[in-house]
Simulated scan of single mutants.
Amino acid sequence: MANTVQARKRARQALAARAHNASLRSRLRTAIKAVRKAVDAGDKAAAQAAFQQQVSIIDSIADKQIIHKNKAARHKSRLSAAIKAMGAAA
């Protein structure tokens, strides 16, 4: 356990930050799942609408450095590719 007042305060702050970051990561995963669900349903229009809506969430979480910007780009790229593949399959 922390011995100094400053260290105790930083420990408290770290717990609060960890909880906040965990909620943002959960929000990211939910956003990705929403697009995947639309893709799996086979409705390309709904998938594109969901993708457009979720891109801003993914970008905002990357801007807050919860995930790396390249990871955000990778997720967006894979979701976009999955949507484009729907048109080729149909």
Rank of each mutant, 00 (worst) to 15 (best):
A31V: 00
T4L: 04
Q6R: 11
S26E: 10
Q6A: 15
A82N: 10
A90E: 15
A22C: 00
S77Q: 13
S56T: 12
R10K: 06
A41G: 15
R36S: 09
A50Y: 02
N70G: 00
I32G: 00
G42N: 01
A90S: 14
A62M: 13
L79K: 00
F51W: 08
R74D: 09
L79E: 12
H68C: 08
K84L: 08
A2I: 13
A14Y: 04
A14F: 05
S80K: 05
R10L: 15
K44N: 05
K33C: 03
Q13S: 14
R74Q: 11
A7L: 14
I32L: 07
I67M: 01
A81V: 09
S77D: 01
A72L: 00
N21R: 08
N70V: 03
Q13G: 14
M86K: 03
K37Y: 07
A19C: 02
D40H: 05
K64N: 12
S26N: 10
G42Q: 00
A38L: 06
L79Q: 07
N21P: 07
V35L: 07
H68Q: 10
G42P: 00
A73M: 08
F51V: 04
A16E: 09
L15W: 14
A62P: 05
A89P: 08
A62E: 10
H75A: 11
K84R: 14
K44Q: 09
T4H: 03
S60C: 07
K37D: 06
L79G: 02
M86G: 07
K37L: 06
A31K: 01
V35D: 02
I61W: 03
A31H: 01
M1T: 13
R74V: 09
S80E: 09
S56H: 06
A62W: 15
R29H: 04
K84E: 08
I83P: 01
T4V: 06
F51A: 07
A41W: 00
T4R: 02
A49L: 10
A88D: 09
H75Q: 12
A17Q: 08
A89D: 10
F51D: 02
A11I: 15
Q65R: 15
A45N: 04
A50N: 01
M86Q: 11
I58P: 00
A88H: 05
T30I: 06
A73I: 06
V5K: 00
A45Q: 05
R29Q: 04
S26H: 11
G42T: 02
Q54M: 07
R27K: 10
R8S: 11
I57K: 01
I83V: 11
A17S: 10
M1G: 12
Q48W: 04
A22I: 04
R25D: 12
D59S: 04
R78Q: 15
I57S: 01
A85F: 12
I61F: 08
K9L: 15
A34Y: 02
R29F: 05
A90T: 11
V5M: 07
D43T: 02
S77Y: 05
